[in-house]
Design a protein around this nucleic acid. Sequence first.
DNA 1: TATTGTTATACTCTATAACTATA
DNA 2: TATAGTTATAGAGTATAACAATA
Lengths: 133, 133
Amino acid sequence: MSRRLGYLFKHAGLRLAELTGPALEPYGIDGREFGVLSVLAAPEPLSQLEAAQRLRIDRTTMVAMIDALERKDLVERRPHPDDRRKNIVELTGRGRDTLGAATRAVDGAEEAFLAVLPGDDAERLRDALDRLV
Amino acid sequence: MSRRLGYLFKHAGLRLAELTGPALEPYGIDGREFGVLSVLAAPEPLSQLEAAQRLRIDRTTMVAMIDALERKDLVERRPHPDDRRKNIVELTGRGRDTLGAATRAVDGAEEAFLAVLPGDDAERLRDALDRLV
DNA sequence: TATTGTTATACTCTATAACTATA
DNA sequence: TATAGTTATAGAGTATAACAATA
């Protein structure tokens, strides 16, 4: 009997995290923080809420993540010029450098993780997941 | 830019759980309990530790799960005849009936979840995940 | 000494409710 | 009245440490 899809998603994620976690460690961030940095690198500046929505996480969760990234001097909050309820969150110079290096590290970890798949199966897997999410 | 693999696994799992959760609700179990029941339906009887290892969860986690399933009269513990440190955990009649109905419900939920994938992409996805886990 | 099950405990991740300041 | 950010808090889910019973 094939294993359940729920089991497969969960443990695929866990096994991938076993590679990406150590890969990110030199840069002082974890996988979730890497995700936030990636989202904040969007061409247009994002508010905390917009960043949270793109990652489908709660805005209260985002507060703590931005707090941590700000303490590490990787992002900066500044008030939105037209709506002072909002914070614009932008990468610092150090944040951009960290994101660049971390992206290469995660790319490598994903490649290693997917290396067992023959031919174009890795690409097809990513395409299928993209449709499902 | 394609979304990150970690994001895709996480949210694919979350979206699937939005279907399997309600599908299992009539049977009074959640997805994790369904996983335990499925494992315990193995041809040979399993101890708590063996069941935990097959699901890659901690044995202390398994204690609480078996407690809950036993309260629902879906499984029974009995001492292993040759090694009294071990508990053999077996499905009750009601556990077998519940597993059968729940399996059909989860099959339906998975099918609905995968319905957006054309051709044999669903099969290929499952095969790829099986290799990765 | 090592293993299985158990309990107590703590940690991570996440969400809900209520507050503030702005709109 | 509604929205964005914040804080306090609580709930899952999980793992670690320590113990009893057994090997």
